[in-house]
Structures are given as C-alpha cells and as structure tokens.
Design a protein around this nucleic acid. Sequence first.
DNA 1: GAAGACCCTGGAGTGCGCTCCAGGTCAAGC
DNA 2: GCTTGACCTGGAGCGCACTCCAGGGTCTTC
Lengths: 129, 129
Amino acid sequence: MPSTGQTIADAAATLGLTADTLRYYEKDGLLLRAVPRDPSGHRRYETADLRWIELVTRLRSTGMPIRDVRRYAELVRAGEGNEHERLALLQAHREEVLRQLAEVTAHLGAIEYKIGSYEDRLLQLERSA
Amino acid sequence: MPSTGQTIADAAATLGLTADTLRYYEKDGLLLRAVPRDPSGHRRYETADLRWIELVTRLRSTGMPIRDVRRYAELVRAGEGNEHERLALLQAHREEVLRQLAEVTAHLGAIEYKIGSYEDRLLQLERSA
DNA sequence: GAAGACCCTGGAGTGCGCTCCAGGTCAAGC
DNA sequence: GCTTGACCTGGAGCGCACTCCAGGGTCTTC
C-alpha cells in the first residue's frame, strides 16, 4: 500500500515554493495542522494541506505579512464562532491591496510617460542620422 | 541673503521620506549628484534634486530594487549616449510591474471570492437567528 | 552491505532596505 | 556665553522572510 499524499519535494513543486519554505511555514504556525507523516517520519501533504497553503501563498504574494497570515490561521484553527474576525482581517487586507494597486498603477503611469519620452527622443535621433 | 533650497527635514516632509533615508540614498549612489551644502555643511535640496528623488520614490514604490535604481542613476550621470540602455532598464521594469499587477490582481480575485463566501455565511447566520 | 537519494531537526546565516545611535559641529535666541 | 535644536558622520542594529547548513536517519538499488 503506497503512502498517501505528496512528498515535500512534490508539494514544493506543485505550489512553486521550496521545501525549506514549507517547513518554515509549518514551524511558524501558518498551517492549520502539523502535516501528517509517513512511517519513517517524512511529511506527506494531503489535498487539504495543499489547498490551505495555496491560500497562504495568495495572501503572501498580495503582500500580507507572515504575522497576519499566522493570525488568520489561528482563527481558522480555533473553529467556528470567529467568522466576523476572519472576515474583518481579509477585508482589511483587501483594502490594503487595493490601495497598493492604485499607488503602483499611478506611479507606473509616470514611469511610462518617461519611457515614452525616451522613445521619442531616440526616434528623433534615428531620423536625424 | 537666505540660503536657497530646502533643508533635509523639509525635503523629507515634501517627499514623504525620512531624513535618514535621504542620507542613505545619497550615500548609496541613488542620486545624480552630492546634494549641495550651506556654509555650515547642511544639505540644501534644490528643485532638481527633489524632482530626481521623486522619480526614485516612484521606481522604489513600484518595486525596483535599490541596485537597479543606482544603475539607472549611473547611466543618467554618465550623460548622453546611453539612452538605449536607460530605456531598456525602464522597459524591463515596466514589464515586471505589469507582471506583478496581473499576479496580485488575480490573487486578489480569489481572496475576494473568499470574502464573499464569509459574508454570505454570516448573513445566513443572522437570518436564522 | 555499500552507495545514493530523499528526508529529518535545530539553528545559524543572508539580503534587503532602511533605522537608529553616539559623539560632534554650528547658528540663533535668551 | 549658554542652552536649544537642527544637522553632520560613521557605523551598528533591526525586522522580515526566507535560505542554508551540519549531522543524522531511512529506503531502495545494485
């Protein structure tokens, strides 16, 4: 009978992370549970683990700090009854992401203007050459 | 005759940075020139300095690493003749920013979906209460 | 039963981008 | 002439998020 679930190497490849990062997330309390082990003590990631970590990577890559992800994980681990707090945490993050998107977009506009002016200048030079 | 230009405190306030950060940028080669000093050795930021630093903050807050900003500053300091390289640097940054915006936007979509499901769940609870 | 591949733990190390001193100079106000 | 406050320099320190060992176990393959 083959062990169920993915090895840490497979999970890392699936999720686009490294094995070190997966161990670090677990040690740091970002996961919902200790990842189950096979008889020799190696981690076997199950679908539920992978799905949760996928959410973690989404929160992380939208800029949520580790400590907030941990807080959210704590709330989920605590079980039903704190849905308002979870929602508030996600909504606050959403607002922050929207703020950042707006800021980056605005700055990008100014940078693209500068790119345009370089392109124009180089075009002029070519034409006059 | 009053000294011309802004003090470091004023410049920091104008730009939304700290005095420490301004000194750090200068020491690290992100500026186009050593900021001019008043007779007692204090920095006086002139309009040209402030405008350049404003560009630096735009590059920084769209995620360009310090070392790339420094590289761009070096090109501009080197004077005319490297416009292609400057343009390439900015274009590469633009592509990276667009990639990130797309990624964040996609992840945000998934997070908003989750927010929606919490809102629905809480609404159900209220209704049944 | 030796070699190689994979995994384990605890803990140290790294890169980035600031941020914060300590100790000192200088100009203005009382 | 003394305090106060803003600024100076060089350099140490910090928070974050990993990343990288050293030393050791286990499983498979030959």
